[in-house]
Write a protein that binds this DNA or RNA. Structure first.
Length: 194
DNA sequence: CTTCCGAAGCATTTTACATCA
DNA sequence: AATGATGTAAAATGCTTCGGA
């Protein structure tokens, strides 16, 4: 039933009223063979669908000339071709959205799993007996007790300012304080330049 | 620069039909 | 075989955007 060309327009039939054409075909239509109301909605034939799909693959939108030509070729109204392309674009977009949704679901799943692993790792590390925190000296490459480190004067000033909560006026009055300084290496953040 | 208008596309909804339990 | 539920695709409707007058 699916594959029947129930809307096949006979050669020479006008396209002004496809519903009427459809009604004329009642005798050809197994559904309406005996009685019942005429078909009110077009079903595209396999060949029409194939051509439309082919055209859609080449271009997702049609200019008026292309639309007219395609309609003529398919023995459909330009409006019907237009509607078909509209619906086809919508289906295409829906499919794309569904694929993106699946991708995001998988990504979410893998992130959740990664998060679980990291949480476990944190728990394991916390459970371990560890000594006081140490850092690796950038100069000697030896571990240093963090408590023995001192802060460089600039970092100290920054920290102090953060504690005080710098006013907008102070910041505005001296906007180049940080950026104009020559970069220095510090034991507590050896890889970073202040 | 602003306003108006028509064309085109898109989102949403309705409708007709097909299929399946 | 009949029927209701459901899915799908064609078509209708209303809104937005854009370009030209």
């Amino acid at each position: 039933m699916k594959d029947l060309d129930i809307n096949q327009v006979p050669a020479g039939a006008g396209e002004e009223d496809w519903t009427a054409v459809s009604m004329e075909l009642e005798d050809e239509d197994p559904i309406n063979m005996n009685s019942g109301p005429p078909r009110k909605k077009l079903r595209l034939t396999k060949e029409q669908s194939r051509l439309l799909e082919e055209s859609f693959r080449q271009n997702h939108t049609l200019n008026p000339k292309q639309k007219e030509a395609l309609a003529m070729q398919l023995k459909l109204k330009a409006r019907q071709v237009e509607v078909w392309f509209q619906n086809r674009r919508a289906r295409s977009k829906l499919k794309q959205t569904e694929m993106e949704c699946e991708y995001l679901k998988r990504w979410y799943g893998s992130l959740t799993e990664q998060n679980r692993r990291l949480q476990r790792e944190v728990e394991e590390l916390r459970a371990m007996k560890v000594g006081p925190p140490t850092v690796i000296s950038p100069h000697t490459c030896e571990p240093l007790l963090a408590s023995t480190l001192t802060m460089c004067p600039r970092c100290e000033r920054i920290t102090a300012n953060q504690d005080k909560g710098p006013t907008r006026a102070a910041t505005a009055a001296n906007p180049t304080t940080l950026s104009s300084k020559v970069p220095t290496i510090h034991p507590r953040h050896p890889s970073a330049a202040c």
